[in-house]
């Protein structure tokens, strides 16, 4: 992929829908399955990923001409790890309340495939501006995916939404167990593909 020709708006929209990290690119499935047990988790992890993605994309696109091609991946990992550590430290020091809820998620991000992949596919070939919008789109797309999964799993698993009791009972405890994550992700992927097929058919017809 050479330098992108898409507009900034298109980049953000693609990140959320057409190239949604979870449902279309099928990346970062471990956190998607493991953490998406509630809407709140989805939002918090989403915010954390958004920040790391944007910062890392920007950093890499600034230094893209100086990265030795044979050590690209270590450099990406190093960049991500640095940003994760910085965000982790700053959050814990100045936003202790938010850190209490987000702490464990932030540290997880170092190992997220989606961020490394975006740096490799996009940030190292594009300008700072484009990389920023791409990072933003990917971050939002990830958050969207996590919140959707969390919505389904929290509602069906605990009968609550954002911690508020909605149903008054727990329909299926199974949904908050890790294994159910696979089912929900699979069904959601199917739904996304189906909508895509129907939509493009209608466009043709």
């Amino acid at each position: 992929m050479a330098a992108t020709t898409k507009s900034n708006k298109q980049l953000v929209l693609d990140g959320v829908l057409k190239e949604n990290p979870i449902f279309r690119l099928a990346l970062s499935m471990c956190p998607a399955v493991g953490i998406s047990t509630s809407v709140m988790n989805g939002i918090l992890l989403g915010i954390a990923v958004l920040f790391v993605q944007v910062f890392s994309s920007c950093t890499i696109s600034i230094i893209r001409h100086y990265i030795h091609p044979r050590i690209r991946i270590p450099t990406y990992t190093l960049t991500i790890a640095t940003w994760v550590t910085v965000i982790d430290l700053v959050l814990s020091a100045y936003f202790p309340v938010a850190y209490k809820a987000m702490g464990i998620f932030v540290k997880l991000i170092v190992a997220f495939a989606i961020i490394t992949m975006r740096l490799e596919m996009f940030a190292c070939k594009n300008t700072l501006e484009k990389s920023f919008w791409d990072g933003l789109g990917m971050g939002l797309g990830f958050m969207f995916g996590m919140v959707t999964l969390g919505f389904v799993r929290e509602l069906l698993g605990s009968g609550t939404l954002l911690g508020h009791d909605i149903l008054g009972f727990r329909p299926l405890l199974f949904f908050i167990l890790p294994s159910a994550g696979f089912f929900v992700v699979g069904l959601m992927m199917g739904l996304f593909n189906w909508v895509d097929v129907v939509y493009s058919r209608r466009k043709e017809g």
Partner: peptide, 11 residues
């Protein structure tokens, strides 16, 4: 250096 600096500032 970046991490160390942040750590010192936030410690």
């Amino acid at each position: 250096a970046v991490m160390g600096l942040t750590f010192t500032v936030t410690a």
